[in-house]
């Protein structure tokens, strides 16, 4: 099986993301993940820059790569033109592709995410739509949101949205043909295969938990 490093190198975001980090810390200074988690994008760049297989494997199995919020504030500032954010994207992709993601609690959450947002894309043509944002699991949305959901179509149509209706406008119901095209794209470009890899991970996880 090709080394982790060579697999990473196939991802264009890896070569774009890291040419030569000089350990200056400008990215971590403005990183919101570093302001909240015990996380340091500079350290990730340094570890990846060693190119050692165990370091990469530890990263791919670890929690750290899942803490980045992908706001890419680091890209604007890096004096060497590196992009820790891209690096994280390539690491996360490989972690899920290779199944190593199930070794970290944060990585395992990708399964939940896939089943929620991934399926929403193919079913509704939207990443997020009102019915997904259930008040029980989104208390932070506040009472107005609960009320808005209760009103549903009346409120949305009052504001000019189509609210799951046929035809034009916001939140319109996607024609089946459109969804098929989306699915075809996911099929053709490896999107579905990627999701299968995630599900394989979930399967393996279930086996481990049972044994």
């Amino acid at each position: 099986m090709a080394s982790l490093l060579s697999q990473l190198k196939d991802d264009i975001r890896f070569s774009e993301g890291l040419s030569a980090c000089m350990n200056c810390g400008i990215c971590t200074a403005v990183c919101p993940a570093a302001a909240y988690f015990d996380y340091d994008p500079r350290r990730i760049c340094q570890l990846v820059q060693t190119g050692e297989e165990q370091e990469l494997e530890k990263l791919l199995k670890g929690e750290e790569i899942w803490m980045c919020g992908q706001c890419l504030s680091c890209k604007a500032r890096c004096p060497r033109g590196n992009v820790p954010g891209y690096l994280i994207q390539s690491l996360r992709k490989l972690s899920q592709q290779s199944g190593l993601f199930i070794h970290s609690s944060e990585g395992r959450k990708q399964i939940r995410l896939k089943r929620r947002i991934g399926h929403s894309i193919l079913e509704t043509g939207y990443c997020v739509h009102p019915l997904m944002v259930e008040p029980e699991t989104h208390p932070e949305q506040g009472p107005v949101w609960i009320w808005a959901l209760e009103q549903g179509a009346d409120l949305y149509r009052r504001c000019g949205s189509n609210y799951y209706g046929e035809g034009e406008g916001g939140l319109r119901k996607m024609a089946p043909g459109v969804l098929n095209e989306l699915e075809a794209i996911f099929e053709e470009t490896g999107g579905l295969r990627f999701w299968e890899a995630i599900e394989r991970g979930a399967e393996e996880l279930k086996l481990n938990q049972e044994s």
Partner: peptide, 14 residues
Amino acid sequence: KPDFGFSFAPNRAL
């Protein structure tokens, strides 16, 4: 205080 399922934390910056 209602339980939101998460809590905020102060800025980790020194």
